[in-house]
Computed example of a mutant assay.
Amino acid sequence: MKKNIGATDKLIRSAIGIIITILYYSGIINGILAIVLLAFAIILLLTSFINFCPLYALLGINTNKKT
């Protein structure tokens, strides 16, 4: 897997994932929406940790300036 997520993209993904997780555990969001957003947050955090987004690969997007 070639890294296709840059530093800014990684920071934004991590921040959004953490915010959604905090909203879920504090009880601000609940129900089906909470489950969907939590799954989305997990995906964002996972892709930011491995620096690879499969959707970016399919669309030919690369925000990593080092490659």
Rank of each mutant, 00 (worst) to 15 (best):
I50K: 13
F49A: 13
L45M: 15
L45D: 12
I16W: 08
L44K: 09
I19Y: 01
A41N: 04
N62V: 01
I18V: 02
N30F: 08
P54I: 09
G60S: 02
N62M: 00
A34N: 06
I50D: 10
A39I: 14
K65R: 09
I42H: 08
N62R: 01
A34H: 03
I20P: 03
L11I: 12
I22C: 11
I16N: 05
L37I: 06
P54S: 06
R13D: 04
I32E: 09
A39K: 01
I35D: 04
N51Q: 09
F40E: 05
L45V: 09
G60D: 06
K66M: 00
I16Y: 08
A7T: 15
L46H: 14
I43W: 07
K10R: 15
F49W: 11
F52A: 06
A41D: 07
F49V: 10
I12M: 12
Y56V: 03
R13N: 07
A15C: 03
F40H: 04
S14N: 09
S26H: 09
I32A: 08
I61H: 01
S48F: 08
Y25D: 12
L55N: 03
I50S: 10
I42D: 09
S48P: 06
K66P: 00
C53L: 06
A57I: 08
G17S: 08
I28N: 13
L59Q: 12
A15K: 01
A34D: 07
I43T: 14
L37M: 07
A34G: 12
N30K: 06
D9C: 15
N62L: 01
T8R: 05
I35W: 06
T8L: 02
F49L: 14
N30E: 10
Y24Q: 03
V36H: 11
V36A: 14
I19C: 01
D9I: 01
S26Q: 14
L33C: 00
F49Y: 13
F52T: 06
N64S: 02
K66Q: 07
S48A: 15
G60Y: 02
L44E: 13
G6L: 05
F52W: 05
K66Y: 00
L33H: 01
I12R: 12
V36K: 10
I19A: 10
L55S: 03
A39Q: 09
L46D: 15
A15W: 00
Y56T: 00
T63S: 03
K65E: 11
N62S: 02
I50C: 12
S48Q: 08
G27N: 06
T63C: 00
Y24M: 09
A15R: 02
I12N: 12
L33Q: 03
I28Y: 14
V36S: 11
T47K: 04
I32R: 05
I28H: 14
G31N: 02
L58G: 11
I16P: 05
A41H: 05
